[in-house]
Simulated assay, not measured.
Amino acid sequence: MNYRFPEKVNWNARNLILEVAEKGRTIPGFISLAMGNPAEEAIPVELIRACAAEVLAEDPIGLLQYGPMAGDADLLRWVKDRMVHGKGCAAEGNQGILLSGSGKGLGLMPRTMCQEGDEVYCDAFCFLNTPASVRNVGAIPVGIPSDDQGMIPEALEERAKSGKGKYIYLIPNFHNPMGITIPLERRKELYEVAAKYDLLIYEDDPYGDIRFAGEPVPSFKSMDTDGRVVYAGSFSKTLSAGLRVGFLYAPDGLIRKFAAVKSADGQEPMLNQRIISRCLSKLDFNEYLKSISQIYGRKCALMAESLRQHCSPRCRVLVPEGGLFIWVEMPADVDMDAVNDAVIDAGVGVVRSAAFAVDESEPGHAFRLNFSALPDDKIARGAEIFGRVTRQFCDKI
Rank of each mutant, 00 (worst) to 15 (best):
L254G: 07
M336C: 15
K396H: 10
N272D: 12
I379L: 14
C394I: 12
F356M: 08
E192T: 14
F212E: 00
P251N: 09
H85L: 10
G107T: 04
E119I: 07
I144R: 12
P177Y: 05
I275F: 09
E157Y: 05
S291F: 09
F258L: 05
S291A: 15
A342I: 00
G349Y: 03
P251S: 11
A21Q: 14
Y202V: 07
E54I: 03
P183F: 00
P251W: 01
A354M: 03
R4N: 13
L156H: 04
A260F: 10
D341V: 06
I326W: 04
R211K: 14
R211L: 12
K396I: 14
D204N: 13
Q309L: 11
L170T: 15
P141V: 00
V348D: 01
V84W: 11
F212M: 07
A73V: 14
S102L: 03
P28Q: 08
I326N: 00
I397W: 11
H310Y: 10
C122D: 03
L108M: 08
L18S: 08
R25V: 12
I152S: 05
A357G: 09
D395S: 03
L324Q: 04
A21H: 02
G107L: 09
E22L: 08
S277L: 02
N10V: 10
L56H: 07
I144Y: 09
G214S: 06
F371I: 09
D148A: 15
K221S: 13
V261P: 03
A264L: 09
Q392C: 06
A155W: 09
V350K: 06
R298C: 08
G347K: 02
I182T: 14
Y121E: 11
R14G: 00
P110D: 01
D345W: 00
Y191F: 14
A264Q: 13
G382D: 03
N10P: 06
C122A: 04
E19K: 05
V55D: 01
C89R: 07
N286I: 14
N37H: 11
V343S: 05
R211Y: 09
D224V: 04
E287D: 14
D359G: 10
N272P: 04
Q267T: 12
D337I: 10
L374Y: 01
C315L: 11
G88R: 06
A50E: 15
I275L: 10
G214T: 11
L324F: 07
G88E: 00
D81R: 15
V317D: 00
L271E: 13
Y3N: 02
P172E: 08
T130L: 13
V217F: 01
A42F: 08
G86C: 02
N129D: 10
L156Y: 08
N37M: 04
V261T: 15
L307E: 02
P60K: 02
V134D: 02
A260I: 04
E185M: 06
I152E: 07
F30N: 12
G150Q: 12
D335W: 05
A260R: 12
M35K: 11
G214E: 06
E362S: 10
G227H: 09
D395N: 00
D224F: 06
N37I: 05
